[in-house]
Nucleic acid binder design. Structure first.
Length: 563
RNA sequence: UGGGGAGUCGUCCAGUGGUAGGACGGCAGACUCUGGAUCUGCUUACAGGGGUUCGAAUCCUCUCUCCCCAGCCA
């Protein structure tokens, strides 16, 4: 991870300043605080890279803390997936795996102290009444009739809340701040609610649970966090964050807010993602079309590509939507350097080399076969070469032949010569069609002098196309993905913006035999086409590939323009 | 009409009183056994009006636009 005098973002600037002023004894301690109520997505990756990245750069630490204060929404399945995703991304929280629920006892004691200081009270208003009393954005709220209970009564009531003497929703513990504040968060916010629900870690030990604003600041404080980095929508919670800490005079981290990531052609809100999963618009949280980390991983995205992306998008305070093209660029950039090249024909068209020797029928019932050398990765010679079988009957890509080619089309056409990658120059001499007029086979001649792909007479061809030997290739399935949404910014009614063509399945692709032992998760470049990742659905010798992304495709652009 | 934020190329990010720059995208070209990769060039931006100043994207001021907040969610 090179860090060439890249401009520093405003958060790192604040931290540098704090370090200079010795604000936290030279310490930098951040945290990534997900709520385990869903899977992590690329937006979380931005936050993970920020928090862990800063800790790494400033010789500090970053905790993984599960913000699990709402037992009705949280599950261990999510805890597990979050841990898997964070470490897959390449970050290590060491032994610092914390849970807000670990602090329930401390939090309770802090609440008792606030009651004793007359800074909190038990309120008997119903949730509807609380809303009424809260006022609106324009009008001040009014004080709860329970606001001035005695300390003793509050202490007694709060203890009985904990003991389970009251039903859900009957009472809350509220902070006593200011019902007339322009900041609605300061209008006596609820600190604790009664919830007789089983918590994924504390079981039935508690029936009162702290609210985010109350739990988060103290959790940060307990862990000795220096910089509590969160997203913009918490900006007007900061006065409350500060208020709680100040009332008790405990260690006080500083909250800093940045703009969350928005990505074009997708959605990044847990509510919407969970809806897509539950309503079957995708095949699950890890559907390769999903912007979740598990989806991106299955699709073929690498941690390096995602980290690089997070690095490039920067950190600022203005709302923005990053173009999906940048994410794709980061993937190509990474995969170009590291991926094994291979030839695979997605939409096969049979091609017979009519002047190629047929071999001895008794020993080789099919054709003569020869082995040709192919480079595994032109970007990395250390990856070596491999042998690929060549014979009389091949498959090429349907798109690589045009009976009536436009001027800009360089590939195979009647009478035209092209190169078969790493093999020979061939010339199309005949086009075979079925009774419907569909092209079913091409007859070509080859030039034996061009073996390996070079012509001794320096004659040029305008195109090189990929191919596989029909009798050696392996049948495979390919899943081609496009944007999940057809528009850059899905609207309020986002499901109507879903891209109906986000998935195209090709069942009879032919791939070179080198792929016989490919394993789920392996990523290859199918030459001239894109990067493909072996899907876990591959089984029983049947390979399934996910197209992570296409190669840049100049011809596709020209073709689009021609239409 | 309350409170909190934000406005710089199509997109994202820099620039913090001294010629507005980078990346992605787009366009054009070079090169090429991937129409890939690589390389080169081009394109386009300081929300608006007033001020301060020799000089303003940067400072002051007024206006406009956009985002967030009325969960016993986080």
């Amino acid at each position: 991870m090179e860090n060439k005098e890249r401009p520093v973002d405003f958060i790192r600037e604040i931290i540098r300043e704090d370090l200079k002023n010795d604000k936290y004894d030279g310490m930098v301690h951040t945290r990534f605080p997900p709520e385990p109520n869903g899977y992590l997505h690329i937006g979380h990756a931005k936050s993970i890279c920020l928090n862990f990245g800063i800790a790494g750069e400033f010789n500090g630490l970053c905790n993984l803390r599960f913000d699990d204060t709402n037992p009705t929404k949280e599950e261990v399945e999510y805890v597990e997936s979050i841990k898997r995703d964070v470490s897959w991304l390449g970050f290590d929280w060491q032994e610092r795996e914390y849970y807000a629920s670990d602090y329930f006892e401390n939090l309770y004691e802090y609440a008792v102290e606030l009651i004793k200081k007359s800074k909190a009270y038990v309120c008997d208003l119903s949730s509807d009444e609380i809303r009424e009393y809260r006022g609106t954005l324009m009008e001040a709220g009014k004080e709860s009739p329970y606001r001035n209970r005695s300390v003793e009564e509050n202490l007694d009531l709060f203890e009985r809340m904990r003991k389970g003497e009251f039903p859900d929703g009957s009472r809350t513990l509220r902070a006593k701040i200011d019902m007339k504040s322009g900041n609605i968060n300061m209008r006596d916010p609820v600190m604790y609610r009664i919830l007789h629900a089983e918590h994924h870690r504390t079981g039935n030990k508690w029936c009162i649970y702290p609210m985010y604003d109350y739990a988060h600041c103290f959790s940060d404080s307990i862990e000795g966090i220096t910089h509590s980095i969160c997203t913009l929508e918490f900006e007007d919670h900061r006065p409350l964050y500060d208020w709680f800490l100040d009332q008790l005079g405990v260690y006080h981290p500083q909250q800093i807010e940045f703009a969350r990531l928005n990505l074009s052609h997708t959605v990044l809100s847990k509510r919407r993602l969970i809806q897509l999963v539950q309503e079957g618009n995708v095949r699950g949280w890890d559907d390769p079309r999903m912007p979740t980390l598990s989806g991106l991983r299955r699709r073929g995205y690498t941690p390096e590509a995602i980290r690089n992306f997070c690095d490039r998008i920067g950190v600022a305070k203005r709302d923005s939507t990053v173009d999906m093209a940048l994410l794709e660029f980061c993937l190509r950039e990474n995969l170009n350097k590291r991926s094994q090249r291979v030839m695979a024909v997605l939409k096969p068209l049979k091609l017979v080399i009519v002047n190629y020797p047929e071999g001895q029928p008794e020993e080789q019932p099919e054709n003569q076969v020869e082995e040709l050398d192919a480079i595994n990765n032109p970007e990395d010679p250390s990856m070596g070469t491999r042998k690929i079988p060549f014979s009389r009957v091949l498959y090429i890509e349907q798109d690589d032949f045009r009976e009536e080619p436009p001027k800009e089309f360089f590939r195979l056409a009647p009478g035209r010569e092209v190169r078969l990658r790493y093999a020979y120059f061939i010339k199309c001499v005949d086009v075979i069609k079925d009774k419907n007029g569909e092209i079913i086979e091409l007859h070509c001649t080859y030039d034996p002098a061009t073996r390996g792909g070079d012509s001794p007479d320096r004659r040029k061809v305008k195109a090189t196309i990929h191919w596989v030997s029909a009798s050696h290739s392996i049948e495979a399935e390919a899943r081609l993905y496009d944007h999940l949404f057809a528009v850059p910014s899905p609207g309020e009614d986002f499901k109507k913006d879903l891209n109906p063509k986000s998935l195209e399945i090709l069942l009879s692709c032919q791939v070179e035999p080198y792929l016989a032992h490919a394993k789920p998760g392996d990523i290859y470049q199918f030459e001239r086409q894109g990067y493909f990742c072996v899907d876990p659905d591959s089984s029983g010798g049947k390979l399934v590939f996910n197209r992570a992304t296409t190669l840049r495709d100049t011809w596709a652009k020209i073709e689009k323009r021609l239409k």
